[in-house]
Design a protein around this nucleic acid. Structure first.
Lengths: 229, 229
DNA sequence: TCAAAAGTGTTATTGATACACCCATGT
DNA sequence: ACATGGGTGTATCAATAACACTTTTGA
């Protein structure tokens, strides 16, 4: 059984100021000093990889602000970091847009499509995280992890547009999510803006656990209609 | 950086005799003697996890018969195997149905919905592999990895039905795959069976590289039509 | 009364399922 | 001829994109 260093890394994503951003810290020491790096670190002996990444992120960001964590992939190229071989398990983490975690002074948020110079293979991990997020927004209820507990439809539209990288229609977004039973009105309305206009109704996600909502894109099992009676 | 044993494991799936089966070997020694286990082993110092699983599978099955290999997930619970901690990177492997790999005497194929007593967390890995395969058959061209180079529509129907676990219609399967440009006729026809009937036309997959064919189930980007002119 | 923002109704389109029908070949 | 599958045409259904229209409020 090969012995190898094992680290866990997370691309923590949040929609900030209208764009999808990732949390990075600036390396002070070699290797790759002054380059930006994903948070993470070594795997402890008595924790699994998910517990480990949650523990390590707790040093950067309040755990309660992490609304979703999932494995992305293993990165294991022998030369991915200088020196002895280190295998990395990469994660995607999500933080809702209404929080502004207090981060250490070496840590900052960067728009995912304008990354600074990054360390090691961390840019590839960011790309993977972005892609996973965009995919899951389409076929799961993962939007809850980016959104505050309550939000207006136009706020939600901005979140989805930023995360997907293209504009989505508020009208159709509401209808798709409502038909699937993901969205429910709270009954309250948001305060109105400086320039008037109708106050927006507030909504929440019906569930804050990730659930697949579109399991069979095609090749669905036979409908119950043709089986019944 | 935590040091940990690292192993790679693969659930190699094939449609055999009309059912989806997984390759397992029977453990001779403790721990978990007489239980069935996924092929794999330790990660070497100079290979990444994918090279490693391909190398280790080569001992069980001719590499050229492996039409697809992809990462599933990391399994890392501290107690997943007795003794010192071992982290496992699990893979899905696929073998086309027209091959019958020569396997060692301790190794055999088992239908995935009637598994024998399995070792460690290997049953969970098999479940994960099954689920991944079924999902990807719906939104990628992954069928090529289960199918022979040429096949009739009804043979393909049997493959998809076995892998998905429910009957699919030959008519609609052909149309869905053709519309997406995945399937192309070879021009040849298959030899006719003992009881007559029209000879079936032969088809092949246009590409034998995995490609996503249904990238946006919903929340598609705006169509080119509304952007043009 | 007007402007701004929110939300609804309606149509068109796309892509899938279900199913009837026609075709080609061996016996 | 006819039985045995293979393949095609077509009706129907479901979900979504596009867009015009109505509603609600503040200035």
């Amino acid at each position: 059984m090969g012995l190898a260093g094992h680290e866990v890394l997370a691309a923590v994503l949040q929609v900030r100021a209208g764009s999808l951003q990732v949390m990075l810290w600036e390396r002070a020491r070699e290797p790759h000093a002054r380059r930006w790096s994903l948070p993470g670190g070594g795997l402890g002996d008595h924790e699994d990889v998910e517990a480990s990444i949650r523990r390590q992120l707790a040093e950067k960001v309040d755990v309660r602000q992490l609304t979703h964590v999932e494995q992305l992939a293993v990165f294991s190229a022998p030369g991915r970091v200088p020196g002895p071989r280190v295998v990395a398990t990469a994660f995607l983490g999500l933080v809702p847009s209404d929080t502004d975690p207090v981060v250490p002074s070496d840590t900052a948020w960067h728009p995912v499509d304008a990354l600074p110079a990054t360390a090691f293979d961390h840019e590839a991990i960011c790309r993977r995280a972005r892609h996973r997020l965009a995919s899951k927004l389409s076929y799961t209820n993962l939007g809850f992890a980016l959104a505050p507990p309550e939000f207006t439809i136009s706020a939600l539209r901005k979140l989805y547009s930023a995360a997907l990288g293209y504009q989505v229609s508020a009208t159709n977004l509401q209808r798709v999510l409502s038909r699937r039973g993901l969205l429910e009105p709270t009954g309250a309305v948001a305060p109105v803006g400086p320039s008037g206009g109708r106050p927006a109704a507030l909504f929440r996600f019906a569930s804050r656990e990730m659930r697949v909502t579109d399991p069979f894109a095609v090749l669905r099992p036979p409908s119950s209609r043709s089986l019944g009676t």
